[in-house]
C-alpha cells in the first residue's frame, strides 16, 4: 500500500497553485490535509501524476465572516473551524457536526474544503453545505465561479470541479435570528461514515428544511411543513423513497428509509425546538 509515483508541487502562493494545476490539467489533484486522498493514493485507487500542495498558501488559510456568510478557505483544517470561537454562535449546525467528522486525529489535518471536494455522500460537511444552502467558490488561473451545493455535487465522489480548477473557499450562510438547526446521525461505529445523517433548519417563518446524507449519491434536501401539519408525514415518506436507498454491507435500503423517516422527524422537531 504505497502511492504510485507522482510529481509533488508545494505552492507558496495561490497563483503558483493555479499555474501548476493549469499545466497538469486532468492529471493533477490538489492536496492539503490528504485525509481522503492519501488513502486512495496508498491503495493506488487514485494515481494522479501531479499533486499540488496548497497547505502553505496563506490566502487559503483564512476563516472570515462577511455579508452574512462565513468563508472558509481551502487550506483551513477542520480542527481550525471546530475551534473557531464564533462557530457555535454563527453556524450552530456545523458546530454540532464537527465532532462527527472523522476523528480528532483526522480533523487535525483534514480540511473543510477537502471533505467537500471528496464529495462522499455520507460525509457531514457536504450535508451541511446543502442543508445551509452554502456556496463553493471555484477558480482556475483565469476565472472564478460560484456554485451552489446542488450544482457542485455531481454524484458519488464526483464534483463540478474542472481540470485546472480548484476550490478556493466554501461560504456558509449564517442564519437570521429565530432560526433553529439540528443534526443527527446514525453510523455503525462512532466516527464512521453515516448510514443516515439528517440536518434540519427551522426558519423563522415556520417552514423547515431537511437535508439527508448517506442515502442518495449526493446529499438531498426537502422543504417540509410543521410536523403537526397533516402533510408532513406523507411528504417525509415520499422524500425517503425518492432517495433511491440501496442495500449495502452496513444497512438495508429499508433501514435507511426507516431512519430517514424517524431521524428526519426528530431532527426537524429538534430544529424547531431550538428556534428561539
Amino acid at each position: 500500500m504505497k502511492p504510485a509515483p507522482f510529481d509533488y508541487v508545494r505552492a507558496d502562493a495561490l497563483g503558483e497553485a493555479l499555474e501548476a494545476l493549469h499545466e497538469a490539467g486532468d492529471e493533477a489533484r490538489v492536496i492539503s490535509g490528504g485525509q481522503s486522498l492519501v488513502p486512495m493514493l496508498n491503495m493506488r485507487l487514485a494515481r494522479p501524476s501531479v499533486l499540488v500542495d496548497i497547505t502553505r498558501v496563506s490566502e487559503l488559510k483564512r476563516i472570515e465572516q462577511r455579508k452574512g456568510q462565513v468563508f472558509v478557505g481551502a487550506a483551513v483544517r477542520q480542527v481550525e473551524l471546530e475551534r473557531w470561537a464564533p462557530l457555535a454562535g454563527l453556524l450552530p449546525m456545523i458546530a454540532a457536526m464537527m465532532p462527527w467528522v472523522g476523528h480528532a486525529q483526522t480533523r487535525s489535518r483534514g480540511t473543510v474544503c477537502g471533505s467537500l471536494a471528496h464529495a462522499d455522500p455520507s460525509a457531514e460537511l457536504p450535508l451541511a453545505l446543502l442543508a445551509l444552502g452554502g456556496e463553493m467558490h471555484l477558480r482556475n488561473r483565469r476565472k472564478k465561479r460560484v456554485l451552489p451545493a446542488s450544482a457542485f455535487f455531481m454524484g458519488m465522489m464526483a464534483t463540478a470541479v474542472e481540470p485546472g480548477e480548484m476550490i478556493e473557499a466554501v461560504a456558509f450562510p449564517t442564519h437570521p435570528m429565530g432560526t433553529g438547526t439540528a443534526f443527527r446521525e446514525i453510523a455503525r461505529r462512532h466516527g464512521d461514515f453515516a448510514i443516515v445523517a439528517c440536518a434540519a433548519i427551522a426558519r423563522p417563518d415556520g417552514t423547515n428544511r431537511l437535508a439527508v446524507g448517506g442515502v442518495a449519491d449526493t446529499p438531498q434536501a426537502i422543504d417540509l411543513p410543521d410536523p403537526s401539519d397533516a402533510g408532513f408525514e406523507d411528504a417525509l415518506n415520499e422524500f425517503a423513497w425518492s432517495l433511491g436507498a440501496r442495500d449495502d454491507l452496513h444497512a438495508s435500503a429499508r433501514y435507511r428509509r426507516d431512519l430517514v423517516r424517524s431521524l428526519g422527524r426528530q431532527t426537524v422537531k429538534e430544529a424547531i425546538a431550538c428556534r428561539s
Partner: peptide, 29 residues
C-alpha cells in the same frame, strides 16, 4: 492499516495528533 483507520501510526505534528500514514513525508518540511 495505511488507510487512516487504526490509529497505530499517530504522531504529533505541531502539537496535534496526526495519522503519519496519511501524510506525505514531503509535507513534514
Amino acid at each position: 492499516c495505511e488507510h487512516g483507520v487504526c490509529g497505530a501510526c499517530t504522531v504529533q505534528v505541531d502539537g496535534e495528533p496526526v495519522r503519519a500514514c496519511l501524510m506525505l513525508a514531503a509535507q513534514a518540511e
